[in-house]
Design a protein around this nucleic acid. Sequence first.
DNA 1: GCCAAAGCTTAAAGCAGCCTAAAAAAACAC
DNA 2: GTGTTTTTTTAGGCTGCTTTAAGCTTTGGC
Lengths: 225, 225
Amino acid sequence: MRVLVAEDKPRLANLLKRALMREGFEVALAMDGEQALAMSMMGGLDVLVLDVMLPGRDGFDVIRNLRAARQMTPAIMVTARDAMADVVRGLDLGADDYLTKPFSLEILLARVRALSRRGPITAPADLRFRDLVLHRRTHELQRGDRRVPLTRTEFELVETLMRRSGNIVPRDVLAEAGWGGDADVSDSTIYVFMRSLRSKITQPGEEQLLHTVRGVGYSLRTEES
Amino acid sequence: MRVLVAEDKPRLANLLKRALMREGFEVALAMDGEQALAMSMMGGLDVLVLDVMLPGRDGFDVIRNLRAARQMTPAIMVTARDAMADVVRGLDLGADDYLTKPFSLEILLARVRALSRRGPITAPADLRFRDLVLHRRTHELQRGDRRVPLTRTEFELVETLMRRSGNIVPRDVLAEAGWGGDADVSDSTIYVFMRSLRSKITQPGEEQLLHTVRGVGYSLRTEES
DNA sequence: GCCAAAGCTTAAAGCAGCCTAAAAAAACAC
DNA sequence: GTGTTTTTTTAGGCTGCTTTAAGCTTTGGC
């Protein structure tokens, strides 16, 4: 689901963008009327959130041109003006909804949902290193085409190692990642987890990827040194 | 164009009726919720103007029942209450617009025109995962051909889980979905809800779909791991 | 080669996290 | 108000992740 937010005040624009993204929408921003119109004309958008007071070409203008071009993308107009005439004009020009500032974010979101009836949400990206893939959505680790589930702590550790693959990750960094800032983990606990990870990462006959750096920590890399 | 006005205060009802007729609409009046529902169910209406506070059966109820029966006539809810939660609830139940009293007649007319121009709204996509269907209009969950109603909180949770089916949904995300950003829910509350959901999703003998991810959250997926 | 330090392996114990059932509290309907 | 539904709290039990500990192996310095 793609939403275009046309709003020239950067603060508000970003607030709206973040809120919508949290709801799982893809969000595009337009800073002025020309841009908003151009982007809407291209199609592929599911909902428009249009500020009325835009530089260049105001929201009414955008809607009018859009509707004239038979683009029926649902639009919500947002404005500080609450003059009745404006509201009426906006709706009659082809807007589907109208909000006056100050408005509650919740209400805007509910109205966007009402118009879009929600779509799929975006998932976190997978991390890769060589033939190793960390599926962050499912907490699974894949080597080649073998897949194994990870426990919570294992997951945090692998995530940290993969984020810094190629580099040495000190044990205290791993402790921080797996157990939080006020960590109180003994080395042997870490040994046990690294062993468990090794067995999940590497099967007999496969190249070792998780290497020990004596006195410091661990490192995810390819060749022996 | 036919408009139904459901409003129990005779003065206001007649005012609306006359105003709409001046605009060229055919207008029917309903004095209570039952009557409004019955008349809407018959179909043939282009726009509904629903007061929330109706005797017999409130506006929410009317909308819910209407949408449950796959009647997608566009509806505007009108109410004195301006509590945000009500607005959100109304829109999420399937209302297309919302006005709080006191409102200007001009704005109502413009909104009626906007909705009648748009025609019946498209039914929202029900969420699906395997043989599980979430009917968002009616807050019902279907597994195979067994249907069960969901409470409000259950619904929010299932919706979140289904929108991210296949992925792990952390408990704090579920808390956010079910109780809002400023949530203060104990884990045990969540446990109880997940248990309730499990019993609604899975009957003895059926494959388990809702899995626990220890230390993280829950996940809607198929295979056991 | 010998030693100490660092890291590894294993199995078993501990306990956090989760489940369940039931009852209390709160919200809602009439 | 009363009765009903929904939500939250409570407490006990269970599961399996995490930790511990003890013995073993490797590493690097002499």
